[in-house]
């Protein structure tokens, strides 16, 4: 069982309920005030999955601190850093590095926040989370130390197969752009023909659908917060 939570009191409440009814909480999610009761969380056997440095967006996040992951780790909690967001997930390596700055985790412990520890929390560390003989070949290849802001993922492998290759992605772009332009030209031509046809039959003019814009896929200015479940 994983439990979404923010404040220390509500976390303690659930630990008591779990003790009373005899179930185990595997991981506290978000757990923004976990650092206040890290010993109790560690004693309960639960892990903590938190944000790197989000805070202040709502009242129960006002005591969230970027030292949370490091302090819980120091007190014996298995800690991961999560994204809670499609964009934030793209740079979890950077987010993990923040626990070196805030709380002084070692590079190895910081990397574990986004590799081995989440695997342990999900009970799948026998298959993923570290590079070990017999484990799934789920690998990320960076051009720099992944805990550096300058690191860029070059390749991502899942089950030994290359799902992402930065160079391949870049190389494919001109062909994709050409395909897009061809499709747009085709659509424009079709719309013009329809228009000409319509005029000859003196039907009312209709705006071509091709002009309609796709809505943006990002959250725009709202930033990371709007996309996630918080």
């Amino acid at each position: 069982m994983h439990s979404h939570c923010y404040r220390a009191d509500e976390i303690l409440m659930l630990i008591r309920v779990a003790n009373e009814f005899g179930f185990k909480i595997r991981t506290f999610q978000h757990v923004l005030e976990g650092y206040k009761i890290a010993d109790e969380i560690a004693a309960s056997g639960a892990g903590g999955s938190t944000f790197s440095d989000w805070w202040g967006y709502k009242m129960e996040a006002y005591d969230a601190i970027p030292y949370n992951a490091a302090l819980m780790t120091d007190r014996g909690v298995i800690v991961s850093v999560n994204s809670d967001d499609a964009e934030e997930a793209r740079h979890l390596n950077q987010e993990a590095a923040k626990s070196m700055k805030y709380g002084g985790l070692s590079a190895n412990d910081a990397l574990k926040l986004v590799t081995l520890n989440p695997a342990i929390q999900l009970g799948i560390d026998n298959r993923v989370g570290s590079i070990d003989v017999g484990k799934d070949a789920d690998l990320a290849i960076f051009n720099h130390d992944p805990l550096s802001v300058y690191a860029v993922v070059q390749k991502t492998l899942i089950d030994g197969r290359v799902y992402f290759d930065r160079q391949r992605d870049i190389d494919a772009r001109p062909a994709l752009e050409k395909e897009k332009q061809d499709l747009l030209a085709k659509e424009k031509k079709a719309a013009e023909e329809k228009k000409a046809e319509g005029k000859s039959e003196s039907k009312p003019e209709k705006k071509p659908d091709a002009k309609k814009k796709q809505p943006p896929t990002s959250q725009g200015n709202v930033g990371n917060i709007a996309g996630g479940g918080l």
Binding site: I170, K180, P216, T217, S218, Q219, G220, G223, N224
Partner: peptide, 15 residues
């Protein structure tokens, strides 16, 4: 400019 940490504005824009 806004943050580099955002998703591309459209689906056909490079990641």
């Amino acid at each position: 400019l806004g943050p580099t940490e955002r998703l591309p504005e459209r689906e056909d824009v490079p990641y």
